[in-house]
Write a protein that binds this DNA or RNA. Structure first.
Lengths: 197, 197
DNA sequence: CTAATTGTGCAACGTTCGATGCGGAATTAG
DNA sequence: CTAATTCCGCATCGAACGTTGCACAATTAG
């Protein structure tokens, strides 16, 4: 696999994981190249050689983050209700768990951006839109399958559960633990029958 | 009221309102002094003379924002349920309304901060904590008044409705209109009886 | 070996950041 | 009027920003 040239002096995957955690914790603009190189344990030049630019590094970090917990995987559940519950419960764990900064990177990492970095903000916004559409489609499918009543509104149900999901990121940032977030999920799921039947 | 010295050449209140809207829309660090002076129509020196520093200007902008829609006012409602409903409905309007940037300034304006600006992040976090305690106290009072069942957990109820409230800010940022947010509030309120009775 | 290729350390680039020194303009007080 | 006070335009400060040029190190290919 290795061609000619001097071999890289660090583990690219591990460096990327470090960068992901930093962006995840503080957001795109609040993390400087100096912060990154210090945490990754490499020089400025190595970062640019390996990742191209700050924005490209961020995009790769987001890809890594998403690959670990994509929304798509939950859509395969036998029922829409199961898909929603599994997603909410898994993320209640992840958002307040010990394996990363609190909250969701896609929700929190590009909330405050300067006009020059609109592309980064839009990247995450599009990921959220993609997830919203995915979830709505899953609910439409459930309706077609008779899981939801005729008067149920897939878009409205999606909005409600996404609102809860997004809110959990802020709560996690403010220090809520997994038990508290699971309680929030309990409450949110207790409306399911009212919303869809 | 006016003492000696050259009079200010601009309306301080209006300039503050402009700054508030800018911070509200993009967040503390993503708004530069240049952005501020351009939008406020004043020079750098005037900004510093009138407001002291960027951080002091931000704190004043937050005070102005909070004075318009403090959580405290909703606690006076006859029932806790009414307080929660009124707060959620008013903010569903405000978050997606035409009178300001989408979402809540207290939730969104200091999400991504550099280590040097932790004080700003903490300021908004403390405001959220204060609101949380206020709402919990209102629910405890309701429980003492018999409005809530014995098994109802004021802290858990607070967490649920704050999660919905916070999530609505992200939804507004992503383009949800007031009707959609009111639908989310409908769904959230339909859990009330399950949670507290 | 030489040639080619790639990674790294050092120093620096131009730009923007928040903030300020200074001198003059504009007002009130006496 | 003069003195005192406050505000403002201009120029600029040092620091930090993301990024890059360059020379050298370290490897593979032939």
């Amino acid at each position: 696999m290795s061609g000619p040239g001097r071999p890289r002096g660090f583990d690219r995957g591990e460096a990327l994981r470090t960068a992901m955690r930093l962006f995840w914790a503080r957001g795109y603009e609040a993390v400087s190249i100096t912060d990154l190189t210090a945490a990754m344990g490499i020089g400025t030049r190595s970062l640019y050689t390996a990742f191209g630019s700050k924005e490209l590094l961020f995009r790769e970090a987001v890809e890594l983050y998403e690959s670990a917990d994509a929304t798509a995987r939950y859509c395969d559940r036998p029922t829409a209700r199961q898909a929603v519950e599994d997603m909410l419960r898994a993320r209640a764990e992840s958002y307040a768990g010990p394996d990363g900064p609190p909250g969701c990177m896609v929700v929190l990492a590009a909330t405050n951006t300067s006009p020059g970095n609109d592309t980064v903000r839009d990247l995450l916004a599009e990921l959220r839109t993609r997830d919203r559409e995915m979830l709505t489609r899953r609910l439409v499918r459930a309706k077609a399958a008779g899981e939801l009543a005729d008067h149920a509104d897939p878009a409205a149900v999606t909005s409600f559960y996404l609102t809860v999901l997004y809110g959990m990121s802020i709560q996690a940032r403010d220090g809520s633990d997994t038990a508290t977030l699971q309680g929030v999920v309990d409450a949110a799921l207790s409306v399911w029958d009212v919303l869809v039947t």
